[in-house]
């Protein structure tokens, strides 16, 4: 029994060790959870145009990704939902250059169970989902929005924190929480009817920023340039991002 089990394990190991040894160059990149929709398409197009690369994306809250890079994660390119965390990486000399903005993301309130004015809905809300403000940009501006619109209300006890904005959306999607602060890109990715969410324009959109890390190889560099090109910018606009215009 022992020998047979060991033989089986070895056979499996050999099988998977071989199948993973492909000739393509693997490009590890990290991206904010809110970018999943457009990025899957942009990277898909990139891989079609550059079949020599295979891009692996890890999604998490921007703050978490940056912490992972500090501990030696192998990402060549990091896409964050705001520039602050990348500035931190840059200050520690872990990136090749200062963060590059590539578009602007908007905060929305997703309220599938009731329709109407976002402020009214929030005032009476029993539970509100949002991303953890400490390491997720959309959580951070959600808090800013609440403080700005309801300076005298303490929402503590009504806020349900997700690890990142995708977790916040997941809670609302599953019906566990009636409403939540999420990204406009997520609403467009899920094709949510416009009456189910409100774009919160009273807070500044989040500058989406990227930076190449010390581990960046040719694939990461190519993808970095591709994100600033028209084709990628168009995909981002389709997902509700405001187009990046380079300063003269």
């Amino acid at each position: 029994m022992m020998y047979r089990l060991a033989a089986l394990v070895f056979a499996l190991l050999a099988l998977f060790a071989n199948s993973s040894a492909l000739a393509k160059e693997t490009v590890h990149i990290a991206a904010a959870s809110s970018l999943r929709g457009p990025l899957e398409i942009i990277v898909g197009n990139f891989e079609t145009q550059h079949p020599e690369y295979e891009v692996h994306i890890s999604y998490a809250a921007s703050g978490k990704l940056v912490a992972q890079v500090q501990h030696g994660a192998p990402y060549g390119l990091v896409l964050a939902a705001e520039p602050d965390y990348l500035e931190e990486l840059h200050a520690r000399q872990l990136t090749l250059s200062a963060p590059q903005h590539f578009s602007y993301g908007q905060l929305v309130l997703w309220h599938p169970q009731q329709h109407g004015d976002a402020l009214d809905i929030l005032r009476d809300a029993k539970r509100i989902a949002l991303a953890q403000p400490r390491h997720a940009p959309y959580g951070k501006i959600a808090m800013r929005y609440l403080e700005q619109e309801f300076p005298d209300t303490d929402f503590t006890g009504r806020l349900v924190y997700g690890e990142n904005v995708a977790q916040a959306a997941h809670r609302v999607y599953a019906g566990a929480v009636p409403l939540g602060f999420v990204a406009l890109s997520q609403m467009l990715q899920l094709k949510i009817p416009e009456s189910d969410y409100s774009v919160l324009t009273s807070v500044e959109p989040l500058p989406q920023a990227m930076a190449l890390t010390k581990q960046a190889q040719s694939g990461a560099r190519l993808l970095y340039s591709a994100l600033l090109e028209d084709a990628a910018q168009q995909v981002l606009t389709d997902y509700g991002y405001i187009r990046y215009v380079a300063a003269e």
């Binding site: 693997t26 590890h28 959870s33 692996h56 999604y59 998490a60 994660a73 977790q167 959306a169 997941h170």
Partner: peptide, 21 residues
């Protein structure tokens, strides 16, 4: 972390799938 092909095991991938809805 959740690096495909390196550290993204099944339990982590399932978590990722739920995040991606």
């Amino acid at each position: 972390g959740s690096i495909p092909g390196e550290t993204q095991v099944l339990s982590v991938l399932i978590y990722d799938h739920t995040e991606a809805l």
